[in-house]
Design a protein around this nucleic acid. Structure first.
Length: 560
RNA sequence: GCUCCCGUAGUUAAAUGGAUAUAACGGCUCCCUUCUAAGGAGUAAUUGUAGGUUCGAUUCCUACCGGGAGCACCA
């Protein structure tokens, strides 16, 4: 890659001056008028060299310029500001890069950072009998994109959906069904999950008046863990009702999993884990429960792995899950959990426990966290009944997108929702707003889809006019060209930091550069000798947009 | 009380310690006889406060202020 070439030549130039450099910083200036690459070495190393930054920059420049040849990849080198050395790439370079994009097509941007690496990405993980809300959407969308980016970078990826189908909440739900519900009604209902959630909310209201209900719920969960026949079949029904709804949503979102191993799958495997914890003397009994304590420096609170009534907890299932995964996928497996940031401390506990057990080394367990969706008035909560259901949002989005174009309303609406989550760094909270989440203009998914459709339409016209794309002619470097070749770098950064938003922001820049280009000139023009080159450029833009949007899980309709 | 995260134009966000802090929405002005106006061009407006480190700080450190999250039998 060009980046490495420039770095190497800077290194050589420094060596000649006998200056040692730990790391050479090479970046893209924010402003395209400052060139394509820029380095600050002259400023960083000036004190060491005994020269002023500008003097050192001059010396380096004169040496670097010697290596420039006609027809090479670098057109000129400039010194600017307090001592930046700026590199301007040549038209020949841009020609080559477009050629490469047209040749590699959907493979362009791939890298081998993940060669030979196996990774499980766990995301979405909704809870049975709870609404699939806007909150789960974040994990689903970000996780799906991260899985795609990892795959694009050569990792072997296993997508896992760890459905929450076990735990005390089922005790609560069963109490509520028995007391206030009607199984026949539930069976017939089109929306059984809504009824279940209402029952769940009712339980939490009633429990304030009558705390004994909690004990009843715990009893029912215990019955469930003992596989009481009637209880078990009721539980099974509840799971089926919910899964039907989840699968309908996954279908619409275009999200797939390789493996769906719900918590209940690990039910039998928990005893083994508890024994291992006891045998390795990692846990101890405290107030009748089995608890893991951590070192004082870690500042971590103790982790409960078995309740005093002998039943399991979320953490128990988590540990059993990871043990199973390790056994199934081999010792070098990396496990990533895409889960909300409110579980940050909890995951630290889990990772610490798994290290103590000798299962995983540092870096083999990763928690990618995201902030939560909040309402202007506070937190969303199933119990309070103020959560926003995802299906309502998707339907509303499709309605709004349909006002522009009915045919592509669904992919455009989904694209808008996904992009809204992926365009930002995921750690901060989002205050829910219909206008923000359903934004179809400006910095949005539909903007990118629109730009793609526009590029495709240009290409169609070029075909009709029989203008074949060619990388032989060239213009002075245009803005879109100066962004196109960066795509692989952006992908690499997104993998390294598990951050799809770098791709999202990059695509916006590229699309905006292309749209300006499009507006200023005519691309398809028989009388223009540069037209074939402009067509090739357009084709390259369409390829990058398609690849980039694919990594974000966003569809690219040909027309809209 | 302890731990963690976040404070950037009116709003929502971006920015590997770099140059004049970048976009979008909203506001105001323009551009459809032209390959898609879900578009383009222009315009005004921003780093919570006080210190420190640095040639250079939105970014790193300290304190404070404001918002959010978590902290033993929920998931």
């Amino acid at each position: 890659m060009i980046r490495e070439k420039i770095k190497k030549s800077i290194e050589d130039a420094l060596k000649k001056l006998e200056i040692e450099a730990k790391e050479i910083h090479l970046e893209h200036p924010e402003d395209l008028s400052h060139g394509d690459y820029s380095t600050n070495v002259a400023m960083v190393l000036a004190p060491k060299s005994g020269l002023k930054p500008l003097q050192l920059a001059e010396k380096l420049k004169s040496d670097l310029s010697k290596g420039l040849q006609k027809g090479g990849f670098i057109e000129k080198i400039d010194i600017a500001g307090p001592g930046f050395i700026n590199f301007y790439l040549s038209p020949e370079f841009f020609n080559e890069s477009i050629k490469e994009i047209l040749e590699r097509k959907s493979d362009f941007g791939k890298n081998d950072l993940g060669k030979g690496k196996k990774v499980i990405v766990e995301y979405s993980s909704p809870n049975i009998a709870k609404p699939f809300t806007i909150g789960h959407l974040r994990s689903t969308i970000i996780g799906d994109s991260i899985a795609k980016i990892l795959e694009f970078s050569g990792h072997q990826v296993i997508r896992d959906n760890h459905i929450g189908d076990w735990g005390t909440q089922f005790g609560k739900l069963i109490v509520a069904i028995k007391k206030w519900g009607d199984e026949k009604k539930l069976n017939k209902s089109k929306n059984p999950v809504k009824i279940l959630v209402d029952l769940y909310i009712k339980f939490h209201k009633e429990v304030e008046k009558n705390p004994k209900l909690e004990d009843e719920a715990r009893e029912w969960f215990k019955k469930l863990e003992q596989h009481d026949k009637e209880t078990f079949s009721l539980w099974k029904k509840i799971v089926d009702w919910s899964m039907k709804e989840f699968n309908r949503l996954y279908g619409r979102l275009g999200v797939k999993f390789d493996e769906i191993l719900p918590e209940s799958f690990f039910e039998e495997k928990m005893r083994e884990v508890l024994e291992e914890i006891k045998n390795k003397k990692i846990g101890q009994m405290s107030e009748g429960a089995l608890v893991i304590f951590f070192t004082e420096e870690s500042h971590l609170p103790p982790l409960l792995v078995q309740k005093s009534d002998g039943t399991s907890l979320y953490a128990t299932r988590e540990l059993a899950t990871d043990k199973y995964r390790k056994e199934k996928y081999g010792k070098d497996i990396v496990i990533i959990n895409e889960v909300g940031s409110e579980q940050k401390e909890y995951f630290k506990q889990i990772f610490a426990a798994e290290e103590m057990l000798g299962w995983f080394k540092k870096g083999e367990r990763v928690h990618i966290s995201h902030g939560l969706y909040r309402l202007p008035e506070g937190r969303m909560s199933t119990r309070k009944g103020n959560a926003v259901w995802l299906e309502d949002i998707v339907n509303e989005a499709v309605k709004r997108a349909g006002e522009f174009n009915r045919e592509v309303a669904e992919p455009v609406a989904i694209g808008a929702l996904k992009f809204n989550d992926l365009k930002r760094e995921s750690k901060s909270d989002i205050v829910f707003s219909w206008d923000e989440i359903l934004n179809l203009k400006g910095d949005s998914g539909p903007y990118l889809q629109y730009t793609y459709a526009r590029a495709r339409s240009v290409l169609l016209k070029a075909e009709q006019e029989k203008i074949k794309p060619s990388t032989i002619y060239h213009l002075p470097a245009t803005d879109p060209e100066r962004l196109l070749y960066r795509f692989p770098e952006v992908v690499e950064r997104a993998v390294r930091e598990y951050s799809p938003h770098y791709i999202a922001i990059y695509l916006l820049d590229l699309a905006s550069a292309f749209n300006s280009f499009y507006n200023e000139i005519k691309i398809v023009d028989k009388n223009d000798p540069d037209s074939p080159y402009k067509v090739a450029l357009t084709q390259a833009v369409s390829i990058i947009l398609k690849n980039g949007l694919w990594l974000l899980g966003i569809q690219t309709p040909e027309k809209m």
